[in-house]
Structure formats: C-alpha cells, structure tokens
C-alpha cells in the first residue's frame, strides 16, 4: 500500500512542476498549508520540499546495516565446514591460520582474558552481538574486496567463526533465524558511559 505521506509529497511536487504561476500567486502556499494542517505531527511537514522520494527498490538495495533484531538479514544459510574453506581462502592471510595468530585483529580465543593485564578482545571474548559479525563481514571484508561475498558465504563465515570460538556446535547451520538467536558470551559485558568521573587521588 502506498504511504499517504508519499502521496502528499507526490501531489505537492507534481502541482509545483505543472503550475509555476501558482507559486507567484501564492496559491501553492495556501494549498501547502491546507495539506499540512491535516497532519498532527509537526515533523510530518515537508517545509522545503527539497529532495525526492527514495524508491523502495533503492532503499532495499542500500539497507545493509544489521541491528541486533536482524530485520535486514537476507535469506541464506551457511555451515561450519563451508565457512572453514572460505576462511582459509579469504581471511587467514591477515587473521592467521585459525584466527588466533593475527597479525590483524585476533578473531578467536581470549575467553576469560578481559580483566587480565593482557586482554584479548575477540569475537568470542568481547563482541556482544552475533549480528555484528554478519554486518561487518558483509560490508567491509575481505579487506581488498569488500562487499564481494554472497549471503551464503557470509553466513558460512559467521558459522565458522562462532564455532571456532566455542559458541555453536560443529553441525549448527547459521541463517537469519539462528544468527539472531545466538547469545554471545560477553553480551552483558558492556556498561553505559559514567563520565564525567569524579576525580580522586
């Protein structure tokens, strides 16, 4: 169903295009104020009528950020063995043979290390949400070909990395439902910003 507000903007812009003399006479302003008075919310008023409506197709194409609810996750699925193959092909060169070596950010291990003198902040020890894995791999990895992986491949890499961190079993399939359902070990490890702190010597 078409959003009534979209129709309103469409109406206004079409009136504007086809009736320039309305602008000069001020008739459009009257029309605008009538249209606006019909909406209760102050924010609903397009005051400047600049820009154009984004088509649903365009929005769907751009809508890649994945929140903890996982609403934007695409259809697809991946397994741990599939992910292991992809990891060796695309990721091991920077993150190490099994994600513990680096040289770039360690992805695996570090459990129980956060309160020690040498904390190791990995997906398994630190990240609060599994959805972040899909989001980040999909948008920014592999480093030299970001955004090149297919949904099934991203799900498979999520499966492999979650399994390597001991969070899912060897035979767990990761898809949009199972990914959102995962509770990460450090889910409750984050606290709100308490600053400004009171100075104390």
């Amino acid at each position: 169903m078409r959003d009534p507000a979209e129709s309103l903007v469409g109406l206004i812009s079409s009136v504007r295009r086809s009736a320039n003399h309305f602008l000069r006479s001020g008739a459009l302003l009257i029309l605008l104020s009538i249209a606006q008075s019909s909406t209760a919310d102050e924010n609903a008023r397009p005051r400047y009528a600049i820009g154009h409506l984004a088509s649903p197709d365009r929005v769907a194409k751009l809508d890649i950020a994945i929140g903890p609810q996982g609403d934007e996750l695409p259809i697809g699925r991946g397994t741990v063995p599939q992910g292991r193959e992809l990891y060796r092909e695309h990721c091991a060169i920077c993150h190490g043979e099994d994600g513990t070596q680096g040289p770039d950010p360690k992805l695996v291990g570090g459990h129980g290390s956060l309160a020690t003198a040498k904390p190791i902040q990995t997906i398994g020890s630190y990240w609060p949400y599994a959805t972040t894995l899909y989001d980040y791999i999909n948008r920014a990895m592999p480093f030299y070909t970001p955004g090149s992986l297919l949904p099934d491949e991203v799900y498979a890499l999520c499966a492999y990395l979650l399994n390597a961190n001991g969070i899912i079993a060897d035979d767990t399939v990761i898809d949009r439902t199972s990914l959102v359902a995962i509770r990460m070990p450090n889910r409750d490890g984050f606290i709100p910003d308490p600053r400004p702190e009171q100075p104390h010597e």
Binding site: Q121, P128, I191
Partner: peptide, 18 residues
C-alpha cells in the same frame, strides 16, 4: 545497531573486564 565500530572498537575496556 551495535556495529563493529561501536562494539569491537571504540569501546573502553575497564580493569574489571567490563
């Protein structure tokens, strides 16, 4: 949205591990 840049990075690890 708890993106990588507000979870893995740009968070402040305290001495108690939180």
């Amino acid at each position: 949205y708890y993106t990588r840049e507000e979870t893995s990075k740009y968070t402040d690890l305290m001495a108690d591990g939180r």
